[in-house]
Amino acid sequence: MTTDTLVSRTTGILGLIETHQKTLLVLFLAILIGIPAYANNYVLEVLANTWFYVILCLGLNIVVGYAGLLDLGYAAFFAVGAYTTGILTSRFGFNFWLTIPVAMAFATLAGVIIGGPTLRLRSDYLAIVTLGFGEIVRIAARNLKITGGASGLIGIDRPHFFGTELNQISHYYFVFLALALLAIFASYRLQHSRLGRAWQYVREDEDAAEAMGINRVAIKLYAYIIGAVFAGIAGCFYAAKMTAISPETFTFSQSILILLGVVFGGMGKIPGVVCGAGALVLFPEVFRGIGSMRLLVFAVVMLLVMLYRPQGIWPAQKS
């Protein structure tokens, strides 16, 4: 088969998908909701993990894909959410659901503290500052009493949802699926809004955007904070699912992994980023043998994507 026919077939399929978009979407959702009835716990665990990374990748996508800022310490915001829930439920007896707004507030605060001063500067400075910030958060979590030091926190309360304690993997499958869908919805709405356009203006030409009356610092800060809040919320539910957290979950590698999902799928493209998140989780499950080589393979993939397909694996939108 020549490339031409391949291309025309693919576009044919894409066209079919486009015409039956709504039907397909409903069908797909029905399958996703039906899965827990048939799948075993291993599959559910992997899928729940996938949805979880979809949230994180979409959150980072707002920062990297929409606003064009490189954040190398994204795991720190995830840590802020997880530790807020962990500390408040295990040490202060908070109800899980009440910790979410607190975590959102803390994530916002962290976003303002780190983003406020640095977003004025060149974008590469932000990258290194976020990297440093990520390390500071991890080191602080390792060394503070309240975060449980290197061994972390245990005995985090399971949340209740209308009287049912969420303690099955199938529960978390649905929790993370719902959150991922919410994240997709929010990303879509944000992308196609006044704010979303402003991110694109700033990404394409900061000076021209500024000359058009756009406050580039404020606009970037918005992206940074929204990204932080996504990760913060994901962190809350992560803590509830694991019931134990330790600083080693929130390393530089974690931040890089999330970034890879975004880059691989295609920065700024929602379906691409969702696929990227999926690839992130599924790849090591499928290729169990590679073990410690996983990050090496990921890094090589990242380099190849940047060199040969910087727009990511997802095809460009037709305009």
């Binding site: 704010l195 356009r197 694109q200 203006y201 394409e204 030409d205 918005y222």
Partner: peptide
């Protein structure tokens, strides 16, 4: 803004006259 449409380019000018946020 080269990768955006003509209309989207012009819409950038309206940013400072409008307020919708998150």
């Amino acid at each position: 803004f080269k990768n955006m449409t003509v209309l989207e380019n012009v819409m950038s000018g309206m940013h400072c006259r409008t307020t919708a946020g998150v």
